[in-house]
Design a protein around this nucleic acid. Structure first.
Lengths: 343, 343
DNA sequence: CGTGAACGTGAGAGCGCTCTCATAGGATGG
DNA sequence: CCATCCTATGAGAGCGCTCTCACGTTCACG
């Protein structure tokens, strides 16, 4: 690190001068081009080190027409919705997968209607090389719009339509595993607190519940199903309604841990013992599940992995513009704790 | 939107051609330069609209030597630590304040040691115009290093040393308010579950507790103080220790809601009624506080505001390179719920 | 020993923008 | 009516980089 001539960061030119080669050669070395002689390469590398040279991204972008960055779009409601750290963990997975790629992560958090126009404008202007869209609600036209403009896109969470690459967890399979586990514990009246049915995770988890009971020859009636909004408060209220309507129920599958926690509260308030009288299983395996009393059984989803996989898919899409849209469904796993011990 | 000649996005040149003016004039209009004739301005504006012109950031950055983006650094541990959505909310505040500034937000999440070198390299290379550092632990040298390199920096949460602009919430005052509230409810043996003492919020909240009791003429002995790690589990264990050591205690101030929730559990398990036997107040006013049973009184901190204020401070620092480092302390407020009803 | 491929390197154009400087009018003042 | 100043605009350089093309060696092969 030393003797810069002018002020400011070193440029290719200065490195070239110091290494007594041309700019082009320095560029080759910096970009890992193979066809450079060993001696020359070393001279350049030591000059780079001596000057503390770092390529100027703007100059590079200008000519390559790449921005070397990708956007992550997380609508405000999503960021808040989950009491468990879903959002930071997905972000971590993304950041993780990006670390080796020299790609920067530009975060866009549209806040309410109108602001999405700003985001769309930003993305459409081609300021990033691709976009990761995390759980937009229902029928958001954004992914389609971007795709139409030729901007590579990957969505987190199954989007309603299709034709767009996405990564999702196996909501249906996870729900099935939860219900199977309850049945295996000799529970016979398995209720569920479902999530909003206009959100794919809400719908898919309920579908898994239905399927499993049907397959077991004990299809669920509507009496055993309550829909809530993924919140603790909502889960509590739903549980109260279930208790009133179907007091004989001996198990509950809640489509989120937060709702399961609310259910636990309501059960305690009603004098039902968990797991003795009623078994409970949640979904997400948030940190709160393990701390609950009784500790909450739950379906664990690979949240970081979701971010990582989304990034991989996007990188793939950025390199192979054509090809069919890919999708990845990640496995879930059942974590058994006290709340669902067999009778 | 129409008739682009070449492919790809429109350029200044094309706009100039269409509007029958020079590139320079288009540039002036786009950048809001006042000295452009009204007729010309309108011609340019309509050409811009017709071509859907958006300035190329790379080209602009190259010549202005600004990146028009700022970095937000959130070390991995921070992102996870809080069960409540601290992290997304700060981010939201930042994103909010940036929206009107045409500045992009680049997110950096160093994961564990070693990775911080990558972050430092990125920032030091001047790829962003400034950096917002959210709650790094203890003695992180990053802010100082960056400052030394002339990169504007603002830290979220009081950093241990000084000389660096920061934004923090009034941890001390918040803790004091909590304790005063408990005293006002005729509690006489006010214990506390403190946070880690090597983290400023942990230390400051404990200091507020001490001060207030001292001022009330009833200084706290060590018997009434337990240190935990801001987690629910830690809070529960700390409460158990307190119950054993100081069974006469009639109030607890927990330095985080998660710890307070753990304390609530431990109290219930020990057969203590809240608030009748023991009053409890938490800190953060996370969404979980309101849903707890009994509902948890807590100290609310303006989390989004913190992000917004950090951004404002950074923008100020970017425009006025000199001047003393500023700091902002945000007020907290007491939210009274059931868990601290007077005896 | 000539021919051509393969390889390493340099020269130079140009990416899209900003900004300085020059210039053409028009207004102003003596 | 000419010198002066201002205003609106254009010409052109150049930011730091990549990439194409051309060139000079070297080496294998006939």
């Amino acid at each position: 690190m030393a003797q810069r001539t002018g002020s400011g960061p070193a440029t290719l030119e200065q490195v070239a001068l110091l290494a007594r080669v041309s700019r082009a050669t320095v560029s080759r070395v910096v970009n890992g081009d193979q066809r450079v002689g060993e001696t020359t390469r070393q001279a350049v590398e030591s000059a780079v080190k001596e000057l503390g040279y770092v390529p100027n991204r703007a100059a590079r972008s200008l000519v390559t027409r790449r921005s070397d960055s990708i956007a992550v779009v997380i609508p405000e409601p999503t960021a808040q919705l989950f009491g468990d750290p879903f959002f930071p963990r997905v972000l971590r997975g993304i950041s993780d997968a990006l670390a080796d790629e020299e790609l920067a992560l530009v975060l866009l958090m549209p806040q309410g209607r109108g602001d999405e126009a700003r985001v769309e404008r930003y993305l459409a202007a081609g300021h990033t090389d691709g976009a990761l869209l995390v759980s937009l609600h229902g029928s958001d036209p954004l992914p389609r719009d971007l795709q139409r403009r030729g901007i590579p896109v990957v969505v987190g969470g199954r989007p309603p339509g299709s034709g767009i690459p996405y990564v999702d967890v196996d909501n249906r399979g996870g729900a099935a595993a939860a219900v199977e586990h309850l049945l295996a514990g000799n529970r016979r009246q398995v209720a569920t607190i479902a999530g909003p049915q206009d959100m794919p995770p809400g719908a898919d988890r309920l579908a898994g519940y239905h399927e499993t009971l049907a397959r077991a020859g004990m299809p669920a009636g509507d009496r055993l199903i309550e829909v809530a909004d993924f919140t603790l408060e909502g889960g509590r209220a739903a549980m109260e309604r279930l208790l009133e309507r179907a007091p004989e129920m001996d198990a509950v599958f809640a489509a989120s841990d937060l709702m399961a926690l609310g259910a636990l509260d309501a059960l305690a308030a009603a004098g039902r013992r968990v797991p003795h009288d009623v078994a409970v299983v949640g979904f997400d395996d948030s940190p709160l599940a393990a701390s609950a009393r009784p500790a909450l059984s739950s379906i664990r989803q690979p949240t970081e992995e979701m971010g990582r996989e989304m990034t991989r898919l996007l990188l793939h899409g950025m390199r192979n513009a054509d090809g069919p849209p890919r999708r990845v469904i990640l496995d879930t796993s059942l974590v058994i704790r006290q709340s669902s011990a067999p009778m």
